[in-house]
Design a protein around this nucleic acid. Structure first.
Lengths: 142, 142
DNA sequence: CTATATGTTTGTATTATACAACCATTTTTC
DNA sequence: GAAAAATGGTTGTATAATACAAACATATAG
């Protein structure tokens, strides 16, 4: 593989992450930081899940996710369902309020993306989305 | 613009950032976290610069960069040159040790990228790099 | 039944960040 | 040219996200 191509990817990823983390960890979008947003996404699209599974999904420590989900519960975005087969375990299910919050947040994020991609062609955007997704999938297997 | 394409980009960016921040903010690559790495990159490729300029480049608070550069200086990766025209200002210049550390770190990062892109074609990788760069450039103008 | 494993929470420490206050110079203004 | 305002930078303080370790409650294995 051409070294130069790799260097570009490596550098641009670092820049992307540097910029977007500084934007959204402090000046977060509305009520949801990225963690919360992705947790809600995960629960909405893959159904109720426990803390452990969610932590695995995002490669975070269980304790971290435990606190994040506690915060989501406290805000009324998710609620706990005790696991009928295991007295220790819970599942986190989305609430209507949670869905609403997620959707609003998503729109805010999409709006931002639209601004950035203003001058891009449909085709370029499509390819970019596809490759990002592929990159994430390739990365997770390692 | 096709809504679905935007949704993919938005989601995959969020995932990418979530994953890579959790990896590299704690389990950082060698001696350099992403901030330090990018600061060194910036100084190496764009020449000596002051704290204010660097902060602007990464959209970070000046105080944050002041501490980060102080850490780099303390490790011997950069040194200060007083600005001859302005008694308040400094430039940060790279040292040999700083270059060495940067280069080693870059190799570690490239290795990681190579692993992820193992199954990608040269063409795909090239396009991905190009679009990432374009995305970063588009984003900065907003 | 006791010991060990497991899902989750809680205690504690670290780190990256922002904001505000400050310091030392430089520039502007009168 | 002296006082006032602006500027480059550092330091004090607060917050948030995270990890790791300890604790807790329940489940499973011997």
């Amino acid at each position: 593989m051409n070294e130069h191509v790799l260097e570009i990817i490596e550098l641009e990823l670092a820049i992307l992450i540097r910029r977007t983390t500084s934007i959204s960890s402090h000046k977060k979008f509305g009520n949801l930081d990225r963690s919360a947003y992705l947790l809600l996404h995960q629960i909405i699209s893959n159904g109720a899940a426990g803390v452990k599974a969610l932590a695995g999904e995002f490669q975070l420590d269980i304790s971290t996710v435990s606190r994040q989900t506690a915060a989501l519960e406290q805000k009324g975005y998710v609620y706990r369902i005790p696991d009928p087969l295991d007295g220790r375990a819970y599942s986190l299910q989305i609430t209507e309020l949670g869905k609403k919050e997620y959707t609003e947040n998503k729109h805010a994020r999409l709006t931002r993306i639209v601004e950035v991609l203003e001058s891009w062609s449909e085709e370029e955007s499509k390819v970019f989305g596809k490759l990002l997704k592929k990159f994430n999938q390739s990365a997770i297997q390692k």
